Simulated scan of single mutants.
Amino acid sequence: MNSTNPAPIGIFVKTGSPQLIEVLGTTALDFVVLDAEHAPFDRGMLDLMVLGGRAARLPVFIRIPVIDPAVILSCLDMGATGLLVPHVDTAEQAREVVAMARYRGGRRGYSGGPRSAGYASLSMAQAVHLGDQAQIVCQIESAQAVGQARAIAEVPGVAGLFVGRADLALSLGLDDPRAPEVLQATRATLQAATRAGKLAGMHVGGTPEREQFIDEGANWFVVSSDQSLLRQAVQAIAGAPKQR
């Protein structure tokens, strides 16, 4: 964990480059999240990015594009630290996701060959134990999910909840993720997670928002993205944007 911040901090990575992960591994980030939901990652590139994280000793989560057993199996076999799972609306869905991700008591298929099993260097018992440590974080992105947040958080194997404010706003018929109704739903979700003793996560644009939501109970942050941070840094050097 970042020694200067009590709440772990990561960023979304949307660019296919293992070298980027290597560079981020030289910083004080606690983790990164590969955004396979909204960025054009194929299976091969995800594998290289997770490999880069292993080399850099930087935990790598993957935001999966869809709840599917094959997708979950593939990402975990690559050795991802955990999964950020979009659009989990009910406790039953959360239980299904956990079952797809777990060997013991679940339905995850076993092979000793992948990176997660040490390329057959681990015993089956060792590989199963390590595999079942993968963290499953459920995204709360609808009014229904907010109502179910406490039940989702209490599902065994769910490591935490993550507020997706943009889709949550759309679910509420709004187009502003900072609208009062969205803030109220965000607070309810964060409270549900912390009361269950789970991660209370969210995406924020920068440090001021992060500090605001620490006060609201959030304790796990994805701050901005590689694309946004690159653009901001370059724009600070280049000056005002060009007119198009």
Rank of each mutant, 00 (worst) to 15 (best):
A127K: 01
G82W: 01
G147W: 02
R115V: 04
A120F: 07
P40V: 00
Y119P: 00
G118S: 12
S121K: 10
P59M: 08
E141Q: 13
V88F: 00
P18W: 04
P86M: 08
Y103D: 10
P18M: 06
V32T: 10
M78N: 09
S3R: 14
A7L: 04
T4S: 15
R54W: 05
A117T: 05
D89C: 05
I140T: 09
R54T: 10
R63T: 07
R150T: 08
S74L: 08
Q135Y: 02
T4K: 14
I72N: 02
G44V: 04
G147I: 05
R95E: 15
G147A: 10
V13G: 00
V98Y: 03
F31S: 03
S17D: 05
V88P: 02
R150H: 09
P65G: 14
H87N: 08
Q135E: 15
M100N: 07
L122R: 14
S123I: 12
L122A: 05
P65F: 02
I11N: 12
V85I: 11
Y119V: 05
E141S: 11
L20N: 10
A36S: 14
I62M: 14
S121C: 07
T81I: 00
V60M: 08
C75G: 14
L46E: 15
A101L: 13
L76E: 12
G53D: 01
G109Q: 07
D30F: 04
C138A: 15
H87K: 02
H87E: 13
S17F: 00
V50I: 15
R102L: 02
F41L: 03
I64W: 00
G79V: 03
R54L: 11
L51V: 03
I67T: 13
G44H: 11
G113M: 12
R43D: 13
R108T: 08
A149Q: 04
L46M: 12
V23F: 11
V60N: 13
A55T: 13
R115E: 04
V128W: 06
E96M: 02
I140D: 07
T15W: 00
Q19C: 04
A127E: 06
N5A: 05
V50R: 09
A99F: 04
L84V: 07
A36E: 03
G53I: 01
L122H: 10
V23Y: 10
R108L: 12
P114T: 09
T90C: 03
V32K: 00
V50N: 13
D35H: 07
R57C: 10
E141G: 09
P18S: 14
G52H: 03
V50K: 09
D68V: 01
I9L: 11
P114C: 11
S123E: 04
S3I: 05
R104Q: 13
S116D: 10
Q135R: 12
I9C: 06
Y119R: 11
I72H: 02
L76P: 03
V71E: 06
G105W: 00
Y110Q: 03
S123M: 07
P8M: 08
P65I: 04
T81F: 01
S111R: 06
